[in-house]
Computed example of a mutant assay.
Amino acid sequence: MAFTTVLQAISFALVIVFPNLALMALGFGLQRFTMLNQTFVDTASKLVFNYCLPCLLFLSVIKSQIDYSEQITLIGAGFLTTFVLFFGSVAYAKWRVPDVRDKGVFVQGVFRSNMAIISLSVVTNAYGELGTSVGAVYMGVITILYNVLAVIALSGTSMQRSAGLSQQFFGITVNIIKNPLIIALVCAFVYKGLDLPSLPKPIADTGQLLANTALPLALICTGAALNVKSMFTLSGVSMQASIGRVIIAPLVAVMTGVMMALPPLYFGVLFVMVASPAAAASYVMAKAMGGNDVLAANILAFTTVFSMISLTVGMVLLRLIGWV
C-alpha cells in the first residue's frame, strides 16, 4: 500500500510540474537559438508584473469562496512559518551573501512558494473541494504577506548602504504602495468585502485573457534568462537558496504544524503550501525591482524540479505517520 501511494504521488507530481518545465525549456531553447532577445524578456516581464499577474490574483480572489474566520489557526501557522523563513534567510544573507543585488533575491527564493499554481493543485488532489476552499483562504492572505515581504527584501537590499534609515523606510513604503500585485489583492478583498456585483462580462473576459497569459509568459521569460552552469554550481547562491526552499522550508512547516497541533487537513495544507517550488512571480518581481534576475531564474528552475521530490516524499511520510 505504501509503495503504491508513493508511485501515485510521484506520478501526480510529474503531471503537475511537467507544463512548467516544458515552458521554461521552451524559453531556454528559444534564447539559445536567438529567437528571443533580452529586449523581449525585459518587455514581457514588465507586462506580466504590471498587468497579467495582477489580473490573475484579482480574479482568483473575487471568484473564490473565502471564509477567514474558520481558519485563523491555519493562517496563524502560515504567518509564523513565513516569518521564521523570512527573518532566518535575512540573517543568513547578511553574513553569507556578499553581492547586494543577490541578497533580496536569495531571501525571496527561500521564503516564497508557488501557492497559486503548484500548491493549490496538489491540495485539491489530496483533499478535494474542501481542500481547495481551505487553500484559497490561506493563499489569499499569505500572498499579500509574501508580496509585502518580497518588496521589503528587494527594496532594502537594492538601496545603497549609505542611505539613512528614514530614507530606506520611505523607499520601502513607496514600493509596497506602488506594487501592482499588492494593489490587485487589496482591491480584490475590498471588492468582495463590499459584496459588489459580478464584473461585466466583457471586462471579466478581458481580465481572464490577461490572467491566462501570466504563468506561461513568466515561465518562458524565466527559461530565457536561465543560466544552467550557475544553477548547478554547488557553492553558488542559487544552490544555497534552493536548499533553503527544498529542505529547510518543508521542515519549518512540519515543526510549526506539530507545535500548533494542527488537525490533519490543516497540517497537509500548510505543508503543501510551504513546500512547493519558488513562486513564478519571484523572477518577475526581482527583475522589475532591479534584483539579480538570473539568480531568481536559477532558483525557480532548480526548485521547480527538486521541490516536487521533497514535497512528494514529505507528504508520503506525513501520511504514514498520520499527521496529514
Rank of each mutant, 00 (worst) to 15 (best):
K103A: 06
T132W: 13
A136R: 02
S162L: 11
F111T: 01
L154D: 07
R161Q: 13
T124K: 13
Q167D: 15
K103C: 04
M159K: 11
G164R: 06
S162A: 13
G140K: 01
S119C: 05
V151D: 00
L149V: 03
G131M: 08
R112C: 06
L165W: 12
V105F: 09
A153F: 06
Q167S: 15
S133D: 14
I152S: 04
V123L: 08
V107Q: 04
N125Y: 14
N125H: 15
A116P: 03
S158P: 02
V107R: 04
Y127H: 10
V151Y: 03
F106G: 06
A116D: 05
S121A: 15
Y146E: 02
L130R: 15
L145H: 01
F169M: 15
I144G: 01
S119L: 04
I142P: 00
M159Q: 15
G156Q: 11
V137T: 14
S158I: 10
L130M: 12
E129D: 15
A136M: 11
F111I: 05
M139D: 12
Y146N: 06
S158R: 14
V123D: 09
L165G: 03
L130N: 12
S155G: 04
V123F: 10
Q108F: 08
I142S: 03
Q167R: 13
G131P: 00
G135R: 07
Q167M: 13
G164F: 09
I142T: 06
A163N: 14
V134K: 10
A136C: 01
V141Y: 05
N147M: 07
L120K: 06
Y127E: 05
F106H: 07
G135I: 09
K103S: 05
S155C: 05
F111C: 00
K103G: 01
L130K: 13
T124N: 11
F106T: 09
V137M: 13
Y146T: 02
V105N: 09
I118K: 04
Q160M: 10
F106C: 06
R161S: 12
V141C: 07
I144Q: 03
G104I: 09
S166W: 09
I152Q: 00
Q168W: 04
N147A: 05
